[in-house]
Computed example of a mutant assay.
Amino acid sequence: MIRHIVYFSVRSAADRERVLGGLRLLEANPHALLLEVGENLKLDSLGNEVDFVVYGEFTDADALDAFKAHPSYEASIAAVRPIRDLRIAADFVAKEKR
Rank of each mutant, 00 (worst) to 15 (best):
I2L: 15
I2A: 04
I2S: 03
I2M: 07
R3P: 04
R3Y: 03
H4Q: 09
H4G: 06
H4E: 06
H4S: 15
H4P: 15
I5D: 07
V6W: 05
V6R: 09
Y7S: 12
Y7L: 15
S9A: 05
S9M: 03
S9N: 13
V10F: 05
S12D: 14
S12V: 03
S12Q: 13
A14M: 08
D15Q: 10
D15L: 02
R16G: 02
E17Y: 00
E17N: 12
R18Y: 00
V19S: 04
V19W: 01
L20A: 12
L23D: 02
L23H: 03
R24C: 13
R24Q: 15
L25H: 05
L25P: 03
E27R: 10
E27K: 11
A28M: 05
P30L: 12
P30C: 12
H31R: 09
H31I: 00
A32H: 07
A32S: 12
L33P: 09
L33D: 11
L33S: 09
L33K: 14
L34M: 06
V37I: 14
G38W: 05
G38F: 08
E39F: 02
E39G: 06
L41A: 15
L41V: 11
L41G: 08
K42D: 10
K42P: 00
K42H: 13
K42G: 09
L43A: 11
L43F: 10
D44E: 15
S45F: 13
S45E: 14
L46A: 10
L46D: 14
L46F: 12
G47Q: 14
G47S: 15
G47C: 11
E49C: 08
E49D: 14
D51I: 00
D51C: 10
F52W: 04
V54Q: 09
Y55S: 11
Y55G: 01
Y55F: 11
E57C: 08
E57D: 13
F58N: 01
T59A: 15
T59K: 06
D60Y: 01
A61G: 10
D62L: 09
L64W: 04
L64D: 06
D65Q: 12
D65T: 12
K68D: 02
H70P: 02
H70I: 04
H70K: 02
P71C: 04
P71F: 04
S72W: 01
Y73I: 02
Y73S: 06
Y73T: 01
E74L: 09
A75M: 04
S76P: 07
I77N: 06
I77P: 01
I77A: 13
A78G: 06
A78T: 08
A78L: 10
A79V: 00
A79T: 01
V80H: 00
V80F: 01
R81H: 04
R81Q: 04
R81L: 09
P82Y: 05
I83N: 05
R84G: 00
D85N: 08
L86I: 10
I88N: 07
I88Q: 07
A89E: 11
A89W: 02
A89H: 05
D91M: 08
D91E: 11
F92W: 14
F92M: 07
A94Y: 02
A94T: 11
A94P: 00
A94S: 15
K95E: 15
K97Y: 03
K97I: 10
R98W: 06
R98E: 12
